[in-house]
Design a protein around this nucleic acid. Sequence first.
DNA 1: GTATCACTTTCCATTTTGACGAAATGATGC
DNA 2: GCATCATTTCGTCAAAATGGAAAGTGATAC
Lengths: 127, 127
Amino acid sequence: MIETFETVAKAIADPNRVRILKLLECGELCVCQITAVLDLAPATVSKHLAMLKTAGLLQQRRDGKWVYYRRADRDLNPYAPRFLALVGASLADDPTTANDRRVLAMVNAVPLRTLCDQGRSAFTTKE
Amino acid sequence: MIETFETVAKAIADPNRVRILKLLECGELCVCQITAVLDLAPATVSKHLAMLKTAGLLQQRRDGKWVYYRRADRDLNPYAPRFLALVGASLADDPTTANDRRVLAMVNAVPLRTLCDQGRSAFTTKE
DNA sequence: GTATCACTTTCCATTTTGACGAAATGATGC
DNA sequence: GCATCATTTCGTCAAAATGGAAAGTGATAC
């Protein structure tokens, strides 16, 4: 019980994982899109996503080569919904959150193929 | 902002600190009482309490030699109330929480002086 | 004043975490 | 079959977290 609680609490206790949760409030995203916004190594993002999934906060869906993550709708962890609600009610006016959303808009403007090929430079070097 | 959030989230992400928060739902407690229930070194408990206080989850009060901690009533951290509510709504039927409350009852049955002198043995070796 | 007591701070050892590159996986497309 | 591509797992490292013993603080009692 308390171990289950701990798993979710620890999952929330990292700023990059919270950024991921805030991003996914706008809808599901592919790993390469999340990677582009966070500006971290793919391996790092993948591990964060795995932890959030283990904590029951996220669910996974594969579509061809791409893997999409979204906020969990079924509750695999009894504490997950409460934590998701808490994150949802927090950081609405946080600068990092706001900036991530701005970057996400640029990411969304680029086709997935281009994004995977060129990574961040697909939109940062776009005058 | 997100750093402030992170501070509280990290404070919650340790089982012993959650145990402390659950204990303090019953009312304020002296450090030696908390130490007796958790069965950890005083230095360790003190450090956990300091972290919870820094996170804005707890407040402190000195009464003579004794220092009492209680859940924060003023919000020093904007996210603290939400986290306190979340913990309050969780782990009601957790075995660790239940056992801690049982031990707390025994601790409360012993005068503070005796408890500080003898520590845990003040009630564990009471046939 | 000094001694004592409850607690806190300062180390230090051990464990855990977060990050990345390199190699492995698993699906697509030829 | 094989090559390619998005993602994951593995191995490694530095940084952070946990726990406790020892020293330090600050209040009480004499």
